[in-house]
Nucleic acid binder design. Structure first.
Lengths: 111, 111
DNA sequence: AGTCTATTCAACCAAAGAGTTAAATGAGAA
DNA sequence: TTCTCATTTAACTCTTTGGTTGAATAGACT
């Protein structure tokens, strides 16, 4: 069996959460400021319940925290788990930068 | 409606592909060297057909290219699309680094 | 107490995902 | 051409996902 990193579970959840455009949009909205569920849902062309479910997915991935403020639920971005995904991608960064460097070299040689 | 980046489709596919541990493992294997489907499948505790399907998902996300070499199909990592995901995450890097900086400050203040 | 308002829960549905086994393809070797 | 090996396709099952609507909860305002 191939080795699996101990934090694989987080990666599943985080990458999975980011795989849906609505959820990425929600993260983008929350990067601006903490926002209530209703306000988060407004711009999206789907029911409030559907957005609520997407928020649950983000919460399960640890990407948001929900604070009760009276009768509204205010969601905050918690970007910590994103660094996990970032870290994973970083390990492969050289593979696309190599190609970029090769292209640069090629262009320079052309001049 | 909330704005959606023009390359959202790629992000769906790339993040979706990375959301499964088997597929991340396949990427890790391919980062070592180009590998045939059979050799890729060996370490995994599932049928060859299942691995073949995972490879298709990676291919659809543009993350691998398959070269026919006689009767074996040799898969190469194509990390380009990873930079797409990396770029998206980078936009939110400040959100977890802020927290990290705050922690650093806190620790320094403690000393 | 009664009524808005915000949000979630429950039940449902269609489509996609992850796996299986068995048959089909395609190319090299005998 | 026949056999074998590498891989994909087909058909099927089971679970998860993404959405719906309608009822339930819970806090704030009269």
């Amino acid at each position: 069996m191939v080795k699996r990193s101990p934090d694989g579970l987080y990666l599943d959840a985080v990458f999975g959460a980011l795989a849906h455009p609505t959820r990425r949009a929600l993260v983008e909205q929350l990067a601006v400021e903490p926002t209530s569920v209703g306000d988060l849902a407004d711009p999206h062309d789907m029911s409030l319940a559907a957005v609520s479910k997407h928020l649950r997915v983000l919460e399960d991935a640890g990407l948001i925290e929900v604070e009760k403020d009276g009768r509204v639920r205010r969601c905050h971005l918690n970007a910590g788990p994103l660094s996990e995904a970032f870290g994973w991608l970083t390990r492969y960064r050289v593979f696309w930068e190599d190609r970029f460097d090769a292209l640069e070299d090629h262009l320079e040689a052309d001049q």
